[in-house]
Design a protein around this nucleic acid. Structure first.
Lengths: 95, 95, 95, 95
DNA sequence: CACACGGCTTGCTAGC
DNA sequence: GCTAGCAAGCCGTGTG
């Protein structure tokens, strides 16, 4: 088979129509998925809007979601490390 | 009905458990959608990887997709406007 | 006076060379400032690199800087609000 | 000298006050530079505002600046490569 | 005046 | 290890 297409002819990766068709196919698949992604993103926005319409603060919800997303262990490690540095500074990252 | 929850008691939007349940529901819905979104994003990455495995340059495909994403009309308008400015400058945005 | 240039001739904001010169001047000023900004950004990167070379973890320093940047009061407020929500959920943002 | 501080005592990069002072110094230097950066960014915004006040469209100026920012050579290379792909597709990235 | 939108900035991840 | 691309959060703006 054509092996590494890029090396068959320097600077001419698309010498045959097969490659062109293939490329087109890739692009179309990608574009379809990106539409899906955009749709989902839009759904998420709607949920935030709905929450807001029910008296919740979108910013806070966002924060909660983001906190929950972080792996608990990682977060603890990070915190521990930060504390070390902070203590060392006699600092008061937190006041 | 409870109208604007935020105004019923300043700084206490969660005085009843109903609100808590509602909030929890919102968060769960969001988290579900975000999982979906991540899944789709991951699929897209796979397609790029596959394309690369077929000898295509992911960066270029990315560029093509992005160019195609811009609505043609919008792009033309923008171009027309830009040209006006550029000409006026005797400029050479493009050299 | 020239009032709102945009309305004097629809779609032709650059009918005279004065405007062109003005535009060019704006662009050059912006570009000069952006160079400065890039230079400063680069300096910052260097400092992080230097810190790293002295055994510090750039990520942690970044975090500290960012924490310190937030106004202390604001941070406390945010925390208080978050706690409210979290408690209301009987949640466990932190486990 | 202390070589790689991180390895001298696992998880304790700040065992001595020297390190703490050093860290503090790094942080202060960074914070000073970030102030500068913010100042410059603010200046840039002002210029855009001024341009707008003179009848120019900030969005367009932004676009021009951004176009000019791309190194001409890079842009040409990218274009050449893109054209290759585009032609191969009988495509019209640009219609 | 609130809300939605877009741009900017930042932090993260993956690829070279 | 570094840079570039990606995603998230923040903020200012335009609009109803």
């Amino acid at each position: 088979m054509s092996a590494d297409r890029k090396n068959s002819e320097p600077g001419n990766p698309l010498e045959d129509s097969v490659a062109a068709d293939q490329l087109r196919a890739f692009i179309e698949r990608i574009e379809r998925m990106e539409e899906e992604k955009a749709a989902v993103a839009s759904d998420i926005k709607e949920i935030y809007a709905e929450a807001k319409g029910n008296g919740f603060d979108a910013k806070v919800i966002r924060k909660i979601v983001s906190l929950r997303k972080q792996d608990a262990n990682e977060r603890k490690e990070a915190m521990a490390l930060l504390s070390l540095y902070a203590e060392a500074l006699g600092m008061s990252i937190f006041d």
